[in-house]
Amino acid sequence: MKPGLKMIVLVKQVPEIEKVRFDYEKGRLDRSSAGAVINPFDLNALEAAVQIKEKTGGEITVLSMGPPQAKEALKDALARGADNAVLLTDVKFAGADTLATSYTLSCAVRKLEPFDLILCGEKTIDGDTAQVGPEVAEFLGIPHVAYVEKILDVNENRVVTRSRMERCYYDIEMRFPSLITVTKDANTPRLPTLRDKIKARKAEITIWSADDLSDIAHEAIFGASNSPTRVAKVYAPLSSKRKAVFIKGTTEEKARQIASLLAELVL
């Protein structure tokens, strides 16, 4: 019997969207005033891993690629129940698109082998592609199930998940090693206790640079210059420029105006 499941949770540190300021004139964003947090959906992935561990036993490693500050996010993950943390950080990794990110992450996963299950968030709030999970799975040549809304059952050999596609729900049994991406509906992430937070402060975070992956990876595939996609320009969403007509009058009059408007539009 295996000693429980070996799980890897992919987490990304993201800016607190509410506090990022967007300069629409210049097409720039100012993150300086925004704090950094774990991508909210990755908290669902971590919580799913913790719940699985409570059932089957095992070990959770959180893995992230990002700037040195992303250590803070990993410490937060340790406080929330992860056992080990690895941060991939190197200027060579910087500016990677999803393909280069996924490649880099998959190399690190190789280095962490063997593993049973990789858990990702559904998507990130900044990149918002939902691509990194399935791309990592493809690079590793393992199966994946995306948009998991519920983990129905799990044991040492397989996991059973429920996910919704367009018109149907699918209950899928998947053996290990494999990968899932989870939605916010999978669970409610618990808050770390003060004691866990203090313990995590002192915890060691393993740092890997491009050199540490050189036995596995192709360097020509890291970072911005080796990413196949490039952001050429950013600007403000056009539809934000609607100008509302304020409906005036008594409540009765307002209701009548909106009702006749609706009658015209859809009745």
Partner: peptide
Amino acid sequence: FSGNIMAQ
């Protein structure tokens, strides 16, 4: 960025 900007 959660719909705050558009990117080309």
